[in-house]
Structure formats: C-alpha cells, structure tokens
Amino acid sequence: MLGPNGAGKTTLIRMITGIFYPDSGNIIFDGKPFDAENDITKIGYMPEERGLYKKMKIGEQAVYLAQLKGLSKRDAVARIKDWFARFEMESWWNKKVEDLSKGMQQKLQFVITVLHHPRLIILDEPFSGLDPVNSNLIKDEIYKLARNGSTIIFSTHRMEQVEEICDHIVLVNKGRKILDGTVQQVKQDFKENLFNIGFSDAFAESELNNELFDVVSASQNSMVIQKKENRSNNEILQYFLNNGASIDSFNEMLPSLSDIFIREVEGTPLARRFESN
C-alpha cells in the first residue's frame, strides 16, 4: 500500500485492525464481514511508531502480548524461544526493552507481530531503522511467511522496496484508492510509449518530424521518443534503419513506481520529466 503522507494509510490499517470503525463501507475478512472480536487474533500489526513497555522484561513482554493474541502461555514461550534462537536473541530474555538498541527493538517488534502465526500481517515501514544485514534478515522472514500462506500488507513510501517485494500494489491519496493492480500490470497501464534508443555512431538529427513518433529528448548517442498511437515498434525501427542509424539498443521505458506515484499524486506526466532534461 502506497500513498503520500496523510493519504490515509494508517487510518485504513487501523480500520482493518478494528481500532477505528469505518464511517461507511464494509471490511471483508476471509470472505466474511470483519468481526473484530475473533478476527483480530488472525492479524499481526506492526505500527510505524514502534512501542513496547520499556520497563518490562523482554521475554515476559513477548509472552504477554502473544497471550493477548490468544496463544496459550506454553505455546507462546516455545515459539518465542524458537524465534529468539533464529534471530540470535536468546540472551535477551531477561533484559528490559530500554536496554536494547533501536535496531534490536525493531527485531523484537517484528517477532512479536508474527508470533501468533497471523493470516494477515500488516507491516508499516518495517525496515526503518534497520541496517542492511538485519533488513535482509527480516525480508527473508517476510518472504517465508508469504510462502507459508500469510497475506502481507506492506505500507510504505519507499518505492524501491515495493518494486522488489510486492506482488500487488494499491495507491491511496486523500482517503481514496487511486490505483490497484500487480506491479507489472500497473507499469503496463502507466506506460507512455516511451522508448530509449541508443546509437553506436553519432546519429545526426535530421528532419524527424513524422507520423510515427515524437522526440522527447535527444543527445548524440541516444534519443527518447514517444510512439504515436497504433504504431508498431518495427515501423519505428525500420524508420531509423532507413535513415542510416546504427542502432545499439532499443528499450521500452516502463515507468518506475516512483514515477507513477508522483504522476498520480501530483498529476505530472512522465514525459515532461525528460523534457526538462
């Protein structure tokens, strides 16, 4: 889930987790209307603002929070020990949260979020404050959880992470969904038929005013063009070959999610960004 600050991401999440009630509309969970009382134990939520009881011992605290999610004490202890071993945190059990570094707290928070094997995991900026090593550790665990059948809602404005991790994206702005689809499909939907052509020899720009494409920008060895409607790539290639160009590369420029984000939120078309260059 993507959206600029104040778009309503956290509010939406709080509705999904039963903290807020929607003014209108329904929340469907697992095919049935959301029932906060029972469904809440199937959800694991890690808010952006992390929080734990600072003076409480870590082991006790994890057990307590797991019990509130419906685990028995014995199950909770066993699972926590398992996770702590995996994250090399065994020695932390009797420490207090206030004695941990920010990154360590983050790991603990993640463990607490997923401890009760939630069907739906909601992570709000899960990597903020983590070093690359721990980032990867968490990322691997997220993949593993997804493979085991959990649905993961990932809320962020870090686009490169979205492209890397997500299958499906939803962009929200001012409390409304403005687009929704798989990463590939969204990119296809938002392509503006831009192509980058590389030349091995300098291609002297002659009269390029034609029916096939518009030039967005050009330099000695490359050119960005926008294909006109109902024209094929072959026609364009043919055109350049006929004009004596030696073509090095010919790539469609799919927009990055970041571009789409900015375009949708600000209404800036992609092509204009290249024009200014």
Binding site: I19, I40, G51, K54, I112
Partner: peptide, 18 residues
C-alpha cells in the same frame, strides 16, 4: 500516559478493545 508515550497503545488496541 506511559502507554501512550511508549507508543505501545497502538499495539495493545490491535489486540484488545481500548
């Protein structure tokens, strides 16, 4: 106040009713 400033409140209310 402690729960609020430690930001544990949001974790708690995602498990129990306020």
């Amino acid at each position: 106040m402690e729960e609020k400033t430690n930001r544990i409140a949001e974790i708690m209310v995602s498990s129990v009713k306020p």
